[in-house]
């Protein structure tokens, strides 16, 4: 405790060298995460230069000729690129709007469950899909939504509705993708909110109860404001990765019929770089452009959040 207080009082009052010597054991612990960050996050960034070169495997990264912004010019003159951007924004925007709302609602409702045994049961079972691999998850989805033999077909038959093949409907893709992600990560993502809710002081509940507040009112005026800062931080982080939707699941869910809605930046750069033409330079240019947009978005989201709620990442 004293050490913590000492550290807090020492911040920016002593030179860095002196602080390192005084707290060498803490700085020693930092070596491993910093090394990991440098090796796996910063060192690979040398490869980004192939976005400005015409990469050939025989010459390697350093031996390939510089082409300036040619790859970016090619990127913006590709016919498909506008559609790909629209698809990416549509899917990620949908996910950013719906997923946090559903997760927060689930966490609030779970926290309000009366029986602690039932609460634990729901909590444990809701974590399970998180541990299923993406391939298996898409397999389950294909089985369930099969319009001839899946659960979906059985339900439609019982209701007397004609079961439409949802995999052949391009406009159904964003819904399938977003809701399958919500299904898989709902329980897992709610952990952080449940942890935040556990920090609510019991005195607040007791005072509200004495004042005659119902459980719903307590949820609305005590629980919800408690998780708001956590929500804001997670929302900023989510906006920062808006353009980076994981390509594995989209690739697995893609069919020639839904490509019009399912081709996103990550799948497109994957196909350009590794499948169709092995054009590594164009693939890297697409990814670099994507990362720049993400950086701008996270900056804007942080600014907005700071302005609206006073909560920001930096």
């Amino acid at each position: 405790m004293k050490r913590t207080l000492d550290l807090q009082s020492n911040i920016h009052t002593k030179p860095l060298k002196k602080r390192i010597l005084e707290n060498w054991d803490l700085y020693l612990l930092l070596i491993i995460p910093v090394a990991l960050l440098l090796i796996f996050s910063y060192y690979p960034m040398f490869g980004l230069q192939i976005a400005f070169r015409k990469f050939n495997a025989s010459g390697g990264i350093w031996g390939s000729p510089w082409v300036g912004l040619d790859n970016f010019k090619r990127l913006f003159t590709t016919n498909k690129i506008v559609q790909v951007f629209i698809n990416t924004i549509r899917i990620s925007g949908y996910q950013i709007l719906v997923e946090p709302i559903v997760t927060v609602t689930f966490a609030l409702m779970l926290n309000a469950v009366f029986s602690s045994r039932y609460k634990r049961l729901v909590q444990t079972i809701s974590y399970m899909p998180h541990f299923i691999s993406t391939v298996v998850m898409v397999g389950i989805l294909r089985q369930i939504l099969n319009n001839r033999i899946g659960i979906y077909a059985i339900v439609c038959e019982q209701l007397g509705i004609n079961a439409v093949d949802v995999w052949s409907l391009p406009e159904a893709f964003p819904h399938l993708f977003v809701w399958s992600i919500i299904w898989q990560n709902l329980g897992w993502n709610s952990i952080i909110y449940i942890a935040a809710l556990s920090s609510v002081e019991l005195e607040l509940y007791e005072a509200a109860e004495i004042d005659g507040a119902s459980r719903f009112k307590r949820l609305l005026y005590i629980d919800f404001p408690t998780i708001l800062p956590t929500f804001a931080v997670l929302f900023i982080l989510k906006v920062g990765s808006m353009m980076s939707i994981g390509y594995e699941q989209v690739l697995l869910m893609q069919t020639p019929l839904n490509l019009m809605y399912s081709e996103i930046i990550s799948t497109y750069s994957y196909k350009i770089a590794l499948e169709q033409s092995s054009d590594y330079s164009l693939g890297t240019a697409i990814s670099l452009f994507n990362s720049v947009i993400n950086l701008v978005l996270i900056y804007i989201a942080n600014k907005l959040s700071k302005k609206i709620s006073g909560i920001g990442l930096w």
Partner: peptide, 10 residues
Amino acid sequence: LSLLAVLIPI
């Protein structure tokens, strides 16, 4: 309902 939505596919 959320319990069933998770359990049935699993």
